[in-house]
Design a protein around this nucleic acid. Structure first.
Lengths: 337, 337
DNA sequence: ATGAAAGCGCTAACAT
DNA sequence: ATGTTAGCGCTTTCAT
């Protein structure tokens, strides 16, 4: 491998000067600078980032550990974090935790060894601490973690907006397909739903618990949840905690002979690309993923520069109104008749 | 940051011995080994991978550059490459090229500086060479690149299998929604289609070119392509080069009042998860993504160990039969009547 | 079996 | 403005 020494020799300057050219030190003269640049090109020289990192104690590398790139939300997140990292001259090492603490721990250990400049993490539900990373700037995304700064969508507000939209359309008996209770985001979305719906349900509608189905975030849970709710409490609208669930609900409605949105309104969460391609186009809550990624990477820099953060940043979601939500059916939506 | 020197001091051994323990050298005695291990734990020591890499000239890092993690196929690929890398103790640095040569070049330059042990690349259509990576083991995936070993699905054979399936069901007038002509995979899939269909089209059916629509791999192209084909040459089946296209075609069929598969059969390519969740479930060609990732990572090791490869590995795709393909309609499928 | 020391490629402080 | 050199943290001969 060709080193800076080779470059210096070829350009007939000292290594110090060659190094200075590399780092844009303005003190080197035009002549020498030109010779060094020429040598670099001629030798096809690529500076050794390892040696550099070892010396200056910075790697210009960020770690990103997420449950699964394959998930549309995390995939988008990975892309955006990559872009934000690019913008500040950093590469990103990606690790998939598969939501298993042990796998996550392995990745964190590796990243610590690699002396990354910062960590962006979506912790598993079991994660309690970031032991090996104690002195590396870290930010937690999407899911909160005690003692670490986090940036996430305001899931509760997003859910409230979606459910409020349904209420505004005249719905009162609104079902909810929730996500797993061990995920804070799922609880928050459900909480948002409850805050809006609770006071609108009258005694004869039964307890709100009957309107909530708890499942996973996936398609199948959406189908099953909708099936159960529709047969049990006959809601006129369903708020699903994910688009996958919402799409499953759409299918369930079809299987039960219900038209959407005439007989049933359905809203989702996440605004995955597919949401625009189902029939009818989904009403859904879009997370500000790019903003989250940018804020997280920015926070990393701030933490490194000595700021002490232990703060939860909540970013606003946006309600995207599609064709899957419409006015409540007359006979069901009107208050007693 | 705590270094191996601190560990050695704390364990009252020399750095050499501490290092040997770290690397599992069997010569160190039980007693000293135990002391070193204890010191490591007590100090929460994480070996510095930069220093190590600088010294041994290996980084245990792989580079992965793909067009876009957000694309289901590349997302899955990223995940699988990550797993294969994990299995041999490597981390992976991920870069998105957005299919732009300049962005790709930036990433490659960075990876070269980082002295990665190997590169896995999905080249952009404009990529002709991997200049900065000349002496780094590299493998190209999905799309071929002159002078570099590649591993990819046998797209042509996959397409042939799907189209042959349609033929076996009695279809003769089969349309094709192709992908962009500057992508080899798109051309290969179209070629597979042509090889099967060409000889089966009779003179009165018109030229095969009329049965081919060239677009992008996305949903909208699928919709538009199906619309055009269905109104122009009235095929009884459509082979789409991607699942996104196929799903667009499904929608087009619905908009034209055609039932699938009774009036029209539709087959796709890629077997994205969604393909199982549309109605009817899609017949599609599954790429062996995990196998591709494993083979690529394995190849990297082989190349490093001195093997000289300039070979194209083609891996078999698998036809997944769904409900979107069925027997050709009587009146159209039977030869003259 | 263990210790001492050179050197991987670079930057930065210091000397000129 | 340019050259010299110590040292970042590790592995690996080479002595002992």
């Amino acid at each position: 491998m060709t080193s800076i020494i080779d470059v210096a020799r070829k350009a007939r300057v000292s290594v110090g000067t060659a190094s200075n050219v590399l780092n844009g030190d303005p003190r080197v003269g035009r002549e020498l600078r030109k010779r060094v640049l020429a040598a670099i090109k001629a030798l096809n020289y690529a500076p050794n980032a390892l040696a550099r990192g070892l010396r200056i104690q910075r790697t210009h590398t960020l770690g990103l550990v997420i449950p699964d790139v394959t998930n549309p939300f995390f995939g988008e997140l990975a892309k955006r974090v990559g872009e934000a990292a690019d913008a500040i001259g950093c590469s990103v090492i990606l690790g998939n935790s598969d939501d298993r603490r042990a796998v996550e721990a392995t990745h964190l250990q590796m990243l610590a060894s690699r002396r990354i400049d910062g960590l962006v993490l979506v912790p598993t539900p079991e994660t309690r601490d970031l032991e090996p990373l104690r002195n590396i700037p870290s930010v937690v995304i999407d899911r909160p973690l005690r003692g670490w700064p986090s940036v996430a969508t305001d899931h509760r507000a997003g859910a409230k907006a979606a459910v409020q939209h349904l209420v505004d359309l005249g719905h009162r008996r609104i079902g909810c397909i929730a996500g797993p209770n061990d995920l804070a985001v799922a609880r928050e979305r459900q909480k948002g739903y409850r805050l809006i719906v609770e006071e609108r349900l009258s005694a004869k509608d039964g307890p709100i618990a009957d309107y909530v189905f708890v499942g996973r975030f996936d398609y199948d849970s959406g189908y099953e949840g909708a099936m159960q709710l529709l047969q049990r409490v006959r809601p006129t609208a369903i708020f699903a905690s994910s688009d996958q669930q919402a799409i499953g609900a759409l299918r369930a409605a079809a299987d039960l002979g219900l038209r959407v949105p005439e007989d049933l309104s359905v809203a989702g969460f996440d605004a995955i690309p597919l949401a625009q391609h189902v029939t009818p186009r989904l009403t859904t809550v879009a997370q500000p993923i790019a903003a989250i990624a940018e804020k997280a990477v920015w926070l990393l820099g701030a933490v490194r520069d000595g700021a002490k953060f232990d703060m939860r940043y909540k970013l606003d979601a946006t309600l995207q109104i599609g064709k899957s939500t419409g006015p409540a059916p007359r006979d069901a939506g009107a208050d007693r008749r």
